[in-house]
Simulated scan of single mutants.
Amino acid sequence: MSLMTLTTAITGNQDPNFYAGRADAYDDHQTGTPLDTLNTRAAYNAEHHNPMYAAGYYARVLEIRRETADINDLQADIAHTEHLGRAA
């Protein structure tokens, strides 16, 4: 069974392929696909899919990478603060 990602209505000159790529990257990430695999799929999409679809997929992968980096930084800060708190 697959999951369907619902998005808001697209208006104006926005390309639906861009949002389809973003939705697919979101779905892939939600199902537990590792970040390295998402990067590989983004590179594959750049060569074999509609350019706007590939751009949307890669844009979401970049957001996931930034979110992951932010979470890792916050966890490191918390661990460092807790460690300092115990030493005092």
Rank of each mutant, 00 (worst) to 15 (best):
M1C: 02
S2H: 07
S2K: 11
S2C: 00
L3V: 14
T5S: 04
T5G: 01
L6V: 13
L6F: 10
L6T: 13
L6W: 08
L6G: 06
T8S: 14
A9T: 12
T11V: 13
N13F: 12
N13C: 05
Q14I: 04
D15M: 03
P16S: 05
P16A: 05
N17L: 11
F18W: 08
A20Y: 01
G21Q: 03
R22H: 04
A23K: 02
A23M: 02
A23F: 04
D24E: 13
A25L: 00
A25F: 03
D27G: 03
D27N: 13
D28T: 10
H29L: 06
Q30C: 06
Q30M: 09
Q30E: 11
T31H: 09
T33V: 09
T33S: 04
T33K: 10
P34V: 02
P34F: 04
P34D: 07
P34T: 04
L35C: 04
L38R: 03
L38E: 02
N39E: 12
N39C: 08
N39F: 15
T40I: 14
T40R: 15
A42K: 03
A42M: 02
A42I: 02
A42H: 01
A42E: 01
A43V: 02
A43F: 02
A43E: 07
Y44I: 05
N45V: 00
A46K: 08
A46G: 05
A46Y: 04
E47Q: 15
E47I: 01
H48A: 12
H48I: 12
H48G: 02
H48S: 14
P51T: 06
M52Y: 10
Y53G: 01
Y53P: 03
Y53C: 01
A54V: 05
A54D: 01
A55D: 11
G56P: 05
G56D: 00
Y58V: 00
A59W: 07
R60Y: 09
V61F: 03
L62Q: 07
I64Q: 05
R65H: 02
R65S: 09
T68H: 12
T68C: 01
T68S: 13
A69G: 00
D70W: 04
I71N: 06
N72S: 15
D73Q: 14
L74G: 09
Q75G: 11
A76G: 05
A76P: 06
H80Y: 13
T81M: 09
E82K: 13
H83N: 10
L84Q: 12
L84N: 12
R86N: 06
A87Q: 09
A88W: 05
A88C: 07
